[in-house]
């Protein structure tokens, strides 16, 4: 038994366990930041993961073409040959164009709220072991992102669509829990009545279908199908007037009403988002 305890694997395991446990305690103490070991690994792997996420998206686009007919495939192959010849110039042009288009989407929001400060980020992955909408972004504390920063997706006409909230930050990545997660609660108001009516959250049943709910509403509350719900700003976690979603259904419960809300942001196809780092 002594020989076993003194053996190299056991000593290595004990040393790693102590190092990882210290990192975990530090992570707990830092309240939402990754442990130093995880941050160190993340510095190297987050850019790789970003690259693999964009490759994965490109492959999905290519796979869609295989559903086309033979004639269309031949034409597509010919076009791809032409594009390859011009690729370098087109790639630079496309990137600039994409940046302009993305920032243009936020011009409306920025003009309405000049004090808002944003950090742009891209979704590079999801937390496979959590069941409801956790996203991984390719920016972290080095870009000014902190825990409890709201995450939005943009629209020039309507402003920002609420995606969720940052719950964990490393130097080069951040974890976001979306509004489909039952742990995320958002105080909302109905734009039609301008009343703060309750809290939007989700449950396992509704999150599977991609909806949030506002439950325990009084029967006298003015809410109807088609109403637009926005953040009320109460609680201080989210600024006012971020669009949460649209009411798709109201259900009468025993002594209250439940509103089923379709989130404004398309959680399944999110790519570029903005993190509100100050407002």
């Amino acid at each position: 038994m002594k020989r076993f305890i003194r053996s190299a694997p056991v000593r290595l395991f004990a040393a790693l366990l102590i190092a990882l446990s210290l990192g975990s305690l530090l992570s707990l103490a830092l309240r939402g930041n990754h442990s130093p070991l995880t941050s160190a690994v993340g510095l190297i792997t987050t850019p790789l993961q970003g690259l693999s996420a964009s490759l994965s998206r490109s492959l999905q686009d290519v796979a869609a073409h295989f559903k086309s007919s033979t004639v269309l495939q031949a034409q597509l192959a010919k076009k791809e040959e032409e594009i390859r010849a011009l690729r370098q110039r087109v790639v630079d042009y496309d990137n600039l164009k994409k940046d302009n288009a993305l920032y243009e989407k936020f011009l409306g929001l920025k003009e309405k709220n000049p004090d808002y400060q944003f950090a742009r980020a891209t979704v590079i992955g999801t937390d496979a072991a959590r069941y409801f909408g956790s996203l991984i972004l390719n920016r972290g504390s080095l870009s000014g992102i902190a825990v409890n920063n709201p995450v939005i997706f943009g629209n020039a006409v309507d402003g920002g669509y609420l995606v969720g909230i940052v719950t964990k930050v490393a130097p080069t990545s951040a974890t976001v829990e979306t509004i489909l997660n039952p742990n995320v609660n958002v105080s909302i108001y109905d734009t039609k009545s301008s009343e703060t009516i309750g809290v939007a959250t989700s449950t396992a049943e509704w999150a599977e279908q991609g909806y949030c709910v506002v439950s325990q509403l009084e029967r006298s509350t003015f809410i109807d199908r088609g109403d637009l719900l926005c953040t009320s700003g109460l609680g201080g976690l989210y600024p006012k007037d971020l669009i949460v979603g649209t009411v798709v259904e109201t259900r009468d419960e025993a002594a209250s009403v439940t509103a089923v809300v379709a989130p404004a942001a398309d959680m399944e196809h999110l790519r570029d988002v903005f993190v509100l780092i100050a407002w």
Partner: peptide, 11 residues
């Protein structure tokens, strides 16, 4: 550690 980079939790 790679898993922890992509998840909520304390390691």
């Amino acid at each position: 550690l790679l898993w922890d980079c992509n998840t909520v939790g304390f390691g």
